[in-house]
C-alpha cells in the first residue's frame, strides 16, 4: 500500500517539476516575447514586421533554409542509402564524418569557412579572379547553414534503412528492376515519414541558425542579415519592441514547423500499425 502511494508521490513530484521547469524556461519567455512585441499596439507591431530590412532578412533566411534543406536532403538520402545498402571500406569513417557538424561548435564552423574562403586563404586569389564572394556575402551564409544542418536528414534515414535490411531491394533487383524503380517503389515507402521528419528538423534548425552565420555574415543590413542576426542588431540598438516583434515571427515559423513535425510523427506511427 505505502509503496504504491510512494510511487504516486514520485509521479506527481516529477510531473510538477517538469511543468514548473517548462513554465519558467519556455512558456514565460515566449509570453514575454509576444507581450513585448505588441506593447505599443498592433500598428507598431505590423510596422516593425513589415520594415524593409526585416522583410529582406526574412527572405534571406528563407533562401538559406531552402538551399540547406535541398542540398542536405539530396546528400542525406545518398549518404544514408550508400551507408546502409552497400558494403565498403571506410564506412565507419563516413558515418562519423557525417555527424561531425553537430559536434563542432557553430562558431568554429563559421571560422572554418572564413579561413577556407577568406583573404588568408590560398583559394582567395582564385575566388577573386572569378569575382566570387563567399565570406561576408550570401554564399557564405548558405554554406554555413548547410554545414550546421548537414546530418539532419541522413541521421533520420539511417536507422530506418538499417532495420529494413536489403532483402526487398535484392528481390526487386533480381526481378530486373532498375535503381530508380527500386528506390521509388521499394525503398522510399519505407523511409517516407522519417524522410519528411528529417526535412522538417533540418528546416527548423536552418531557420534559427545564428553562430556560424554570424561569423560569415558581416552583418550588412539588407544584404547579409538573416532574421536571427537582424534580431540581434535591433536588440543591440535598444530597439526592444521591434526586436521582439521580429522574434515573434521566428517563433511563429518554428511553431508551424513543430505542428507539421507532430503531424508527420503521428501519421508515421499510425501507418506502422
Amino acid at each position: 500500500m505505502t509503496e504504491k502511494n510512494e510511487s504516486k508521490y514520485v509521479k506527481y513530484l516529477l510531473i510538477t517539476i517538469s511543468v514548473i521547469f517548462l513554465f519558467f524556461f519556455l512558456v514565460l519567455p515566449l509570453f514575454v516575447v509576444v507581450t513585448e512585441a505588441f506593447k505599443k499596439g498592433v500598428d507598431q507591431y505590423l510596422q516593425a514586421v513589415t520594415d524593409e530590412y526585416t522583410v529582406k532578412a526574412a527572405l534571406l533566411t528563407i533562401e538559406a533554409t531552402f538551399f540547406a534543406v535541398f542540398i542536405n536532403t539530396i546528400f542525406g538520402v545518398f549518404a544514408a542509402w550508400s551507408i546502409t545498402k552497400f558494403r565498403f571500406k571506410g564506412k565507419k569513417i563516413l558515418t562519423t564524418l557525417i555527424d561531425l557538424p553537430v559536434t563542432v561548435s557553430p562558431i568554429i564552423a563559421g571560422l572554418i569557412y572564413v579561413l577556407t574562403f577568406g583573404r588568408q586563404s590560398i583559394l582567395y586569389p582564385l575566388l577573386e579572379k572569378y569575382d566570387i564572394k563567399v565570406v561576408f556575402a550570401v554564399p557564405g551564409i548558405v554554406l554555413a547553414t548547410i554545414f550546421v544542418t548537414f546530418p539532419f536528414v541522413s541521421r533520420e534515414l539511417i536507422p530506418v534503412l538499417e532495420s529494413q535490411g536489403t532483402d526487398e531491394e535484392e528481390a526487386a533487383a533480381l526481378m530486373g528492376a532498375n535503381g530508380r524503380t527500386i528506390f521509388w517503389k521499394v525503398t522510399f515507402p519505407h523511409i517516407k515519414w522519417a524522410f519528411l521528419y528529417g526535412v522538417v528538423l533540418c528546416a527548423t534548425r536552418a531557420m534559427g541558425e545564428f553562430g556560424a552565420v554570424s561569423v560569415l555574415s558581416g552583418h550588412l543590413r539588407g544584404k547579409t542579415n538573416t532574421l536571427p542576426l537582424h534580431v540581434e542588431i535591433l536588440f543591440n540598438e535598444f530597439q526592444y519592441m521591434p526586436a521582439f516583434a521580429v522574434s515573434s515571427v521566428l517563433v511563429v515559423m518554428a511553431i508551424i514547423l513543430l505542428i507539421i513535425r507532430s503531424v508527420i510523427e503521428y501519421k508515421g506511427k499510425k501507418e506502422e500499425e
Binding site: D167, E170, A172, A173, M175, V186, P189
Partner: peptide
C-alpha cells in the same frame, strides 16, 4: 541476376511491405 531466369524465395520472404 535478373537475366538468369531464376525465381528466388528469400529466407524471410522479403515481400514488399508497402505493396
Amino acid at each position: 541476376a535478373s537475366k538468369r531466369g531464376i525465381g528466388f524465395v528469400f529466407q524471410n520472404y522479403a515481400l514488399f511491405r508497402y505493396m
